[in-house]
């Protein structure tokens, strides 16, 4: 507990204000319609969310100052990795299924022939 109270309060406030700014920025981006491409907008929004998550983790959850061995940090990182695997994997698989399953039965033969021509 070497740091002063004022210092720690300052850190909390920095985190709070940064998070606030990031939230409002994301909101403005959507409301203003500056970014017209849906894909880019989604990407930027996710980056802003990720940035805010990192800010909160660093300033509110104090993962930066965890003592070694840093099990909390490791477990957090691994959980995020697995989270991304599950979410991205699910979306990938389900999109693929949707795409393939939405073919009318009479079109299946055609589709299979086309796939065969493409080869693996």
């Amino acid at each position: 507990m070497s740091r002063s109270l004022a210092h720690e309060l300052g850190r909390y406030s920095t985190g709070f204000i940064t998070a606030l700014v990031l939230s409002v920025a994301a909101y403005q981006l959507v409301v203003s319609g500056w970014v017209t491409s849906g894909g880019w907008l989604a990407f930027i929004l996710l980056v802003l969310a990720a940035a805010q998550m990192i800010v909160q983790v660093a300033f509110f959850l104090h993962l930066r100052s965890e003592q070694k061995p840093r099990w909390q940090t490791y477990s957090y990182a691994f959980t995020w990795l697995m989270l991304l695997v599950i979410i991205i994997g699910s979306i990938w698989i389900m999109r693929n299924l949707d795409y393939n399953m939405h073919i009318a039965p009479e079109q299946v033969n055609d589709y299979m022939l086309k796939q065969a021509q493409k080869g693996f």
């Binding site: 990938w92 698989i93 693929n96 299924l97 795409y99 393939n100 399953m101 796939q115 693996f120």
Partner: peptide
């Protein structure tokens, strides 16, 4: 066999 394409299955 549920219907995903070749990429996913591979």
């Amino acid at each position: 066999t549920m219907g995903a394409g070749a990429n996913v299955n591979a």
